[in-house]
Design a protein around this nucleic acid. Structure first.
Lengths: 131, 131
DNA sequence: TCTTAGAAATAGAATGATTCTAATCATTGG
DNA sequence: CCAATGATTAGAATCATTCTATTTCTAAGA
């Protein structure tokens, strides 16, 4: 896993939620010979090892995020993701479900500030960008 | 939207979380001429209208579910989904985030009873079935 | 140092899910 | 009866992701 640490670094330092493609393009700058499949392999390994998170938003490619405990705000209009740190629910959920749980994903749908503004101005439909 | 109500009915009465393909196959029994693209169109419309839910589990095709407020248990081994009714967090989340929120998705990772048993018996890796 | 086994990376084809495009088919209002 | 509009169909196209086969590395022994 020659690229693992580099990929981990890229994801760890990114302020956005990158797709495999974006990770690939970034990595390619320092390692021009790397190939997309390798990035997928590495991302999957890191994910299986629990070192990164994988976030699927309907109708968007999967995104990867550092593994610190936090939740996500998802804009229902442009699909953009924002991190948010909320109280940990693990305890509560274990009590409520009666299961031993391994984790959870909480995605909150809202209208991001940008889309809120856009919608106020003109109720158009567009796909965006800075996820 | 000739098929909308029928599709809504199929999803509403299903005890499982169906993929577009499964909805298609079921619908085809009563409407043999229907086509997969139509099912996708209808599902997307219903989803946009907020009449059904769309659930994406990494590495599995999207699944559709009735729109009653509930959460999901996702087996990290076989990807199966189970419904669970937990207390509504909307209020709490609005308070904590400071945003007006439109909804949320809570997916709890666990090991489903079947996989728990399988793992106890033999720690094999298999993909399963009854989502 | 040379050899080799196993792991990882590469290239590119293949797959699977989903969307798109264009053509056809109702249904409704005029 | 005739557009006009919107839904459906067929099938191609796209996009993300995985797979297969081949090659390259690397590290451990001989």
């Amino acid at each position: 896993m020659r690229y693992e640490s580099r990929i981990l670094e890229i994801i760890g330092t990114s302020r956005t939620h990158m797709t495999a493609e974006q990770v690939f393009l970034t990595l390619k700058q320092s390692c021009p010979s790397v190939v997309l499949a390798t990035v997928y392999n590495n991302l999957n390994n890191l994910y299986r090892q629990g070192k990164i998170r994988k976030i699927s938003v309907e109708s968007h490619p999967d995104r990867y995020d550092k593994n610190t405990r936090h939740d996500h705000l998802v804009c229902r209009r442009c699909g953009s993701l924002a991190d948010i740190h909320l109280a940990d629910l693990t305890r509560t959920l274990e009590q409520q479900t009666g299961f031993s749980i391994e984790g959870y994903d909480l995605k909150i749908q809202y209208l991001c500030p940008r889309c809120r503004a856009a919608q106020a101005a003109a109720p158009t439909k567009n796909k965006s960008s800075d996820l």
